[in-house]
């Protein structure tokens, strides 16, 4: 009885994980621009990977395998948002175009291409661009 229960849990985790990764891959192909693609991959992809590895932990239930599975899960779940931030920032910085359906872009024009500063308002960006501007303080 207990074994059947764990088998059902493992199967459910595997299925959900697999489906999530398929959704992530579908989104990667179907979404119109880079940032929306990243919406699809970073969350569904990381969660799917985490769930399948969790299925391994549940299936074996031995300490050494559970420890390794949990390590993989933590790495995936912790690193996914950081990597997404890094790629998103870099792609915005080099000017990868946004989808034409984008309704609003408050970040536009606030990056300083020379010293990689990001300003908090249009006025700050404007005053930094003036020739007599002092370098920003850290």
């Amino acid at each position: 009885m207990i074994e059947l229960f764990w088998e059902v849990v493992t199967s459910a985790l595997l299925l959900i994980g697999g489906l999530l990764m398929l959704v992530a891959a579908l989104g990667l192909v179907r979404m119109p621009d880079l940032l929306t693609r990243m919406h699809a991959t970073t969350k569904a992809g990381a969660l799917g990977g985490g769930l399948t590895v969790l299925a391994v932990a549940v299936h074996f239930g031995e300490a050494e395998i559970v420890a390794r599975a949990l390590a993989v899960m933590t790495f995936i779940v912790l690193t996914a948002p950081v990597a997404a931030h890094a790629i998103g920032r870099a792609s915005y910085f080099v000017g990868v175009p946004l989808w034409e359906g984008t309704v609003k872009d408050e970040l536009k024009g606030r990056y300083d291409a020379q010293n990689h500063q990001l300003h908090s308002s249009d006025e700050a960006a404007e005053s930094a661009r003036r020739p007599d501007a002092r370098p920003p303080e850290h």
């Binding site: 990243m38 970073t42 948002p81 931030h85 915005y92 500063q117 990001l118 300003h119 908090s120």
Partner: peptide
């Protein structure tokens, strides 16, 4: 998706 924090 958080893109960036302003430098200040």
């Amino acid at each position: 998706l958080s893109l960036d924090v302003s430098s200040d």
